[in-house]
């Protein structure tokens, strides 16, 4: 395997690892608000890593004389557009959910509650 393939594989598995961390996080955290930390956040990093890996793999043998590789470059830019969309949309959705929870009045978990 070439060096690009190694970089792609490492980035991809890092992304999958952070996705798994997010999933374990929303299972382990004690209350709703801290679950949000694990959910929306590791996902931002994980999607970025995995999608950058895929976009990099798509342009692995770029030849500027071929139309096909320019088309591959376009598809890679499209994959990067997904990342931009995720960066604008995910925090907005997280913020909406958090605000709804606060308005409804779900109590946050606090440290002294455990000592009682």
């Amino acid at each position: 395997m070439s060096i690009v393939s190694w970089v792609v594989a490492v980035l991809l598995f890092l992304g999958v690892f952070f996705f798994a961390i997010g999933a374990i996080g929303i299972l382990r955290f004690p209350d709703f608000y801290s679950r949000l930390h694990a959910a929306g956040k590791c996902d931002a990093l994980a999607s970025t890593l995995a999608l950058v890996a895929i976009a990099l793999f798509n342009v692995r043998d770029f030849d500027w004389t071929l139309f096909q590789s320019w088309d591959n470059l376009r598809v890679s830019l499209k994959i990067l557009l997904i990342i931009l969309f995720v960066y604008v949309a995910t925090p907005a959705a997280t913020h909406a959910i958090t605000k709804a929870a606060f308005i409804v009045g779900i109590e946050p978990w606090e440290k002294r509650k455990r000592n009682r």
Binding site: A89, H95, K99, A100
Partner: peptide, 17 residues
């Protein structure tokens, strides 16, 4: 509660795309 500046600005930018 549904008048939220953060949500509105993000959605404004996203809708044309």
């Amino acid at each position: 509660p549904w008048q939220d500046v953060i949500l509105q600005t993000s959605v404004r930018v996203l809708i044309p795309f």
